[in-house]
Design a protein around this nucleic acid. Structure first.
Lengths: 320, 320
DNA sequence: ATGAAAGCGCTAACAA
DNA sequence: TTGTTAGCGCTTTCAT
């Protein structure tokens, strides 16, 4: 900048004014400065600017795994909103490890991101409090983080309830639930929705039809249930990975799955799903964050986005 | 840092030494400083550090779309390698728009990323030259960027050749090729591989069996070919989106597809694919970049990663 | 082993 | 309209 000033024979500040398009610069002077900038190939040093202004125009995004379509949908949406707000996105995957999450978040904070969008892993987020005090805004997505900050969720229990009710309407009375471990917020919510649907229909809750645990065990669990004297006639699966695991068993049981997935319509029969909207989850969270960064006050919001039942065949099969 | 120094009753520089784990600090003094840091909740300001040191310990990743599994695989791999090298990743999606690519790249540069990993969109990357001169390292991935810099590609032509040869071995003599527009590097390479395989087998190249264009037209193109007097008995598809489009037509033609995709094994018949390895593409590019950042010299490398044929049923069907 | 001073490149506040 | 000065928080250099 100094060199540009010298080349254009003006003061440093004038160059700064031109670069930042501040008003109050003579057109001729400005032109001279622009020419000098071109000639010298000058580009503003953002680091210095950040140091001075205190705002980095960047946000941190912490998700479980970019390679998972659900999270990459969130990523893309956050990216787009950030770009529209003149902000860049630093992102990192936690791989479900709370330690890695903590590391990423703190690293982002020490780089002075303006705000954070976090899909929380683990439940203890106390470590965030000093950062929040220091003025970094945060939004939790997909799961609550145990702190009183803005949170954007899907309607997990409502979606599960709708899906299970759909099976009941098609004549099923013994419906298996295969889902994630109870330690995971979304899994608990979805199981709650399952129970709710049964209760609505006056059906008993039979624990032997409920399997919770990692996707690797989902197949065996369901196969076990099918060997009962009174086996389930349909299954509700709690997330994509479990759905795929169940499909791989080769049982073609009537089924509704939580979470949409690519090609669900090409399988035979097509898989009926309760779809979340990852893009909307991401954009809602990002919009909320940028509103906070723009100075919007008020108590933290908790937004629950609706899910959508998409019938494709597997959920409309009657008991055989 | 000033506050910490005051609290620990030492000079600024001593705090700096402790924070950076530089040698030559009395253990007792260091302990006092650490205590003060804890007490005050001090965290180093990276922006200032960057301003002083000149290195940002961050790299820029420019891809087509994080929401596409191929690119998100690359992302995840780059992220992991970056983390291992103590670096953060700024990332952005171009959505195939060269203007957006340029914007992202220049923004990243003005933030003084140490290096760039780019999946190039468009062919003109002249605008990068000044940045390269300024010392920013760059690696192209998936497609060459028209500049003489490190590049990591898949063996597109070899993979296509293997896939088409596989169909020929199963008795097909009229094989359709449905692929992306010829303006896209990978598409041209794959078409070349297709022709190569035909030539190897002494089969004629019949232009009427070749359709290139956007995925939306793939279905109609293939349907058209099937109404010929002498229709193709098998099809080779040039990328995932086209594969899906072809599958949606409902023709269950013998087929080999370029690019693996989730659930390819669950369709009936399973889809035989020529798989690329996005994770390896990303990690190779990132490793290369960090080697350059570590000062490795030498002429730009061009690495071509092998593809892998995965038979699943659709590619082993004989002509009917 | 510790410290003082200079300065990275920029912008805010105030002058002229 | 333009310029001067100070200082963001850190590391580097040189002294002690």
């Amino acid at each position: 900048m100094k060199d540009v000033a010298a080349a254009a024979e003006v003061a440093l500040k004038t160059v700064s004014r031109v670069v930042n398009e501040e008003p109050g610069v003579n057109a001729a002077t400005a032109a001279r400065v622009v020419a000098a900038i071109e000639r010298l190939g000058y580009r503003r040093n953002e680091s210095a600017r950040v140091l001075r202004k205190g705002r980095t125009a960047s946000i941190g995004l912490v998700i479980e795994d970019v390679a998972d379509p659900f999270y990459s949908g969130i990523s893309r949406a956050v990216e787009d909103v950030a770009l529209r707000n003149g902000s860049l996105v630093l992102s990192g995957s936690t791989g479900k490890e709370p330690e890695r999450e903590r590391g990423l978040v703190l690293t982002f904070c020490s780089r002075r991101v303006d705000g954070l969008i976090i899909v929380p892993t683990g439940s203890d987020h106390e470590y965030l409090l000093p950062e929040l005090d220091a003025g970094i805004a945060a939004v939790f997505v997909d799961r609550p983080g145990g702190l009183d900050v803005d949170t954007v969720l899907s309607d997990n229990s409502g979606g599960a309830r709708t899906g299970v009710t759909h099976l009941i309407r098609h004549g099923h009375r013994r419906i298996a639930y295969v889902g994630d471990s109870a330690s995971i917020f979304t899994a608990t919510e979805r199981l709650y929705g399952y129970r709710h649907a049964l209760r609505d229909a006056g059906l008993p809750y039979d624990e032997s039809l409920v399997a919770t645990g990692p996707a690797e065990q989902a197949g065996t669990a369901l196969t076990g249930m099918l060997s009962f004297d009174d086996p389930p006639t349909a299954v509700f699966t709690g997330n994509s990975r479990i759905t795929v695991a169940v499909l791989r068993t080769g049982h073609r049981l009537p089924m509704v799955a939580f979470d949409d997935f690519e090609l669900a319509d090409l399988l035979v029969p097509g898989v009926t799903v309760v779809a979340q909207d990852p893009v909307r989850l991401g954009s809602t969270a990002a919009e909320l964050l940028f509103r906070r960064l723009a100075g919007e006050l008020g108590t933290p919001e908790r937004i629950e986005l609706p899910t959508r039942l998409i019938p494709r065949g597997s959920g409309e099969l009657r008991p055989s």
